[in-house]
């Protein structure tokens, strides 16, 4: 019972935080410089892990499915299989799970330690709104950078699949590539971009919320950090299910 009430309170507080972000998002000051800095730190800073994740995911996909496809004599579609899996599912989800681990935790830790060392209070005392100065830039940065990184992950993953198909299954690169191209349609890409946009928002808002609701000093910062990763990862996977259903029925037809 206690758990349910706590959950309801948290949902309420997160909704309030979202409302305060939206209310102030176009009202000056806009802190454009801070937004760009966060895009650099949170987005560009995650490029390496996204490249590695994408590459090996694509490669292992081609590797694992190669034998099965061969059994049915349709090895030529392995490019399409890898690209579709990446664009629809693995690209958005893996990219954003990595971001939740690297970036969401960082946001919670940074804001949490600012809170316990009274820096947030100092900010308010000196006349700035921590929501606009800290939360909004991180949300804008992640909502824009998560889709961008997902696209990169998809591309690198397809390339990884290609390399695996060529070197371990003796496939011709032209066969793989022309098969992969079939997967790349406008609706697929649109569907594949909606997901990371939503996930990016989830990661940022959960990280900020957990950071700003830290209690209990430095120990509390550790707790908030862990919770932000756990909560946003679970939310990503749950929201992914709902979005997949919606995208399948609305964008990609029966």
């Amino acid at each position: 019972m206690n758990l349910i009430i706590r959950g309801i309170i948290q949902v309420q507080e997160i909704t309030l935080l979202i409302w305060r972000v939206l209310r102030g998002i176009f009202r000056p000051p806009l802190y454009l410089r801070e937004i760009i800095r966060q895009m650099d730190v949170l987005g560009f800073g995650s490029l390496t892990i996204i490249l590695l994740t994408g590459f090996f995911t694509g490669a292992v996909l081609a590797l694992n499915t190669g034998n099965t496809l061969q059994k049915f004599g349709v090895q030529s579609v392995s490019g399409q299989l890898v690209a579709t899996s990446l664009i629809r599912e693995l690209g958005p989800v893996l990219t954003c799970l990595m971001l939740a681990g690297r970036v969401g935790s960082g946001i919670a830790a940074e804001l949490g330690s600012m809170l316990v060392s009274e820096q947030i209070d100092a900010m308010r005392a000196l006349g700035s709104d921590p929501i606009k100065k800290l939360v909004t830039p991180r949300i804008v940065a992640l909502v824009t950078m998560a889709p961008a990184l997902t696209v990169i992950c998809d591309m690198v993953g397809t390339l990884g699949g290609l390399l695996a198909a060529i070197s371990f299954q003796g496939q011709a690169s032209s066969v793989y590539m022309s098969s992969a191209k079939v997967a790349v349609t406008y609706n697929e890409i649109l569907g594949g971009l909606i997901k990371p946009t939503v996930f990016g928002f989830v990661i940022a808002i959960i990280g900020c919320y957990k950071g700003l609701s830290t209690t209990g000093g430095t120990v509390g910062v550790g707790r908030s950090t862990t919770q932000s990763v756990v909560v946003s990862s679970i939310l990503i996977i749950a929201v992914d299910f709902v979005l997949s259903k919606l995208i399948l029925s609305l964008l990609l037809g029966p």
């Binding site: 009274e118 209070d121 308010r124 006349g127 709104d129």
Partner: peptide, 23 residues
Amino acid sequence: TEEQMMKVRHKIGMVFQEGALFD
């Protein structure tokens, strides 16, 4: 409200217990 407070806070300087400098 927080917005109204902003104007009042212009008149006030606060020295925090642990400094609260921006790291």
